[in-house]
Design a protein around this nucleic acid. Structure first.
Lengths: 195, 195
DNA sequence: GTCTATAAGGTGATAGAC
DNA sequence: GTCTATCACCTTATAGAC
């Protein structure tokens, strides 16, 4: 039977992360207080500390979870054989994954400077692993003459910046579907690395 | 003769903007206090209010100044005749201008959400004017068959996101000069919009 | 697990002396 | 133009009752 007070450990934890992610994305980590988060969840501020050691830990947990989901979703994909198909797959995957998680993407980029040094290093290492996947695709394509890029590391960062930029303008319910956006960007990516 | 106290109106104003820009870029607007800014300048917090009505006005002034300098610098350039040369000029201009102003670029993007509604509208309108210049170049190029893009508005935002991304990795004194970076990105931009 | 109460300190902004 | 002092309020985090 329903209770309005008492134990709710299985739903309060996820609710805190959900509310915190939304508020951090909207106003920024430093601008959001633990009281605001608690109020959004429907508990008192003190209750939050049953789920996180402190505010920093809450932010870090959100960012690490996002990066790990990104790597897991990527690893779960069947990788095509040739570099061109791999690049198209990466492009479509990146856009679809990031468009569905606008808040997490925004927070994971904007709040890097608010992470403790150790937490920052952890997140950066996860991000590097993701970038390395794209760079490997580009390098294989260059090796077999399918692609030509001036510098594989810079091309990697340039393409990721371009693709993630979708998040600055795309709004669900607009004139374009996710697949249409994927196709538009894939056209530019394909040509950008063409020989 | 030198004074260690008293009036310094001609240097204190610029110093405040300089220190505020650096601290906002490093830690974020919400995380920086007026006392920290004052301490960086070498005055007491109360003195800041001779130069800005409030903290919000200080942020807005920095962002507006950045956007107006961007538009002025762009307007001061001789525009080549053909769209291909125009696109190369825009690419090189954008990279060089933004690489020299990493703090201002970072703040002007990251702190949009901390602007009052009216201030936000002003900055967004300045940003639109800049984006419109690139879109016009792309449209002219498409009209004469020099370029082919799936959607000129999306291509504009995609290219600007790619170019501004330089700021996430470039550090002065690294292995590449500004001109080398310009050339690397121009190669990708040129191909991305090729027919 | 959640609550209330509280500790210890920081916040933006202003008043009035110099 | 800058300083000191201050107001009213908000901050993170913890202690202990239930």
């Amino acid at each position: 039977m329903a209770r309005t007070t008492g134990s709710h450990s299985d739903i309060t934890g996820p609710r805190i992360r959900e509310v915190a992610m939304r508020l951090f994305a909207q106003h920024g980590y430093a601008a959001v207080s633990m009281r605001q988060i608690a109020s959004g969840v429907g508990v008192q501020a003190g209750a939050l500390y049953n789920y996180t050691p402190d505010k920093q830990g809450l932010l870090f947990g959100l960012m690490r979870e996002h990066m790990e989901e990104l790597l897991a979703a990527r690893a779960a994909r069947d990788v095509p054989d040739d570099p061109l198909a791999q690049l198209e797959d990466f492009t479509r995957f990146h856009i679809a994954f990031h468009m569905e998680r606008a808040d997490a993407v925004f927070v994971s980029y904007m709040e890097l400077r608010n992470l403790d040094a150790g937490n920052f290093a952890t997140i950066e290492s996860l991000r590097s692993r993701y970038e390395d996947e794209l760079e490997a695709i580009l390098q294989r394509g260059v090796a077999v003459g399918l692609f030509s890029v001036p510098d594989s590391k810079i091309a990697t960062l340039a393409l990721i910046a371009m693709l993630t930029g979708v998040n600055t303008w795309y709004r669900t319910g607009g004139r374009l579907s996710v697949q249409q956006v994927e196709t538009i960007y894939w056209d530019m990516v394909r040509k950008a690395v063409a020989p």
